[in-house]
């Protein structure tokens, strides 16, 4: 039997037909059905303006950001099997990960992927600005994008602490140190000294924003746990929801921008 014949046989089986409810995408009707009938592909419209399909226009950077986000979710999930967020175990678990796990490049992919996502999201924003795609009717989606950008940086930042090595705690010490200078809300920020009643200091290093962020006055075990939960659960969930909003709005705002 020829190759074509076999392919046709497979297509005719009940199993195949139960999964793919349409024939091969070689005619207009089926091409529409492929995209509309698949939960992943139906993020797309069925037809698009040619300029919106071209790499030269979108630079594919939003799409790659999304893909890297997915890749980070998968590799991060695998890392969670080996990693315990306590001062006692965290560092040793990372060592075990590099020494005892066969073919271990998950940590590498996760780390370099995190850097890559920061880069692609920046370039995506650069592209969106350069094509003026924030202009009406896409103002709101640009705003959603800016929040996604901030959350991407925070995802990366919270993950930076988890290896619990010197690089990690001191980078987070420098970064989170800024919080204590927050006007009115940080103990070394302007205005904090106004919040005093007699000798009683209302904003101190035991209750200011930095303390809330770290769960302590320095980067210690409570900070590790907080960053772990923010990194593995809270921020990814929010990013996931916002990406859904972002994609929905790309569609509802008329698809990829094009000259009016």
């Amino acid at each position: 039997m020829s190759g074509k014949g076999i392919a046709q046989k497979v297509r005719d089986t009940q199993v195949w037909k139960s999964i793919f409810r349409h024939g091969p995408p070689d005619n207009a009707r089926n091409r529409a059905a492929v995209v509309a009938g698949n939960v992943f592909l139906h993020l797309h419209p069925i037809k698009l303006k040619k300029s919106g399909v071209q790499l030269g226009y979108t630079w594919c950077m939003g799409g790659l950001t999304f893909f890297i986000f997915l890749a980070l979710t998968v590799t991060g999930l695998l890392l969670m099997f080996y990693y315990r967020p306590t001062a006692e175990y965290a560092y040793n678990d990372i060592i075990a990960l590099r020494e005892h796990v066969p073919l271990g490049i998950m940590r590498e992919i996760h780390r370099w992927g995190a850097h890559a996502m920061v880069i692609t999201v920046w370039i995506h924003m650069f592209r969106v600005f350069m094509t003026g795609s924030y202009k009406p009717p896409r103002e709101f989606n640009w705003g959603v994008g800016v929040i996604l950008l901030v959350l991407t940086l925070l995802l990366s930042f919270t993950g930076y602490l988890l290896p619990w090595d010197q690089l990690a705690i001191w980078a987070i010490t420098v970064g989170s140190g800024m919080a204590k200078a927050t006007p009115f809300m940080g103990n070394a920020g302007p205005g904090a000294m106004l919040a005093r009643i007699g000798d009683f200091v209302m904003v101190s290093d035991k209750n200011d924003v930095r303390f809330q962020l770290l769960g302590g006055r320095f980067v210690g075990e409570p900070a590790l746990l907080r960053f772990y939960i923010l990194h593995c659960v809270f921020i990814p969930l929010v990013v996931g929801v916002l990406i859904a909003v972002h994609f929905w709005r790309v569609r509802k705002d008329g698809g990829i921008s094009a000259p009016l």
Binding site: Y91, E108, Q166, W170, A171, G220
Partner: peptide
């Protein structure tokens, strides 16, 4: 990403030591 991951190992420095700050201490 895979090639990058194979060529460059993710770095790991010494275990966290709150009493000894590296110089320079840089943010990400």
């Amino acid at each position: 990403l895979i090639v990058w991951a194979i060529i460059f190992k993710a770095p790991l420095e010494e275990s966290a030591n709150p009493t000894w700050a590296p110089n320079p201490a840089k943010a990400p």
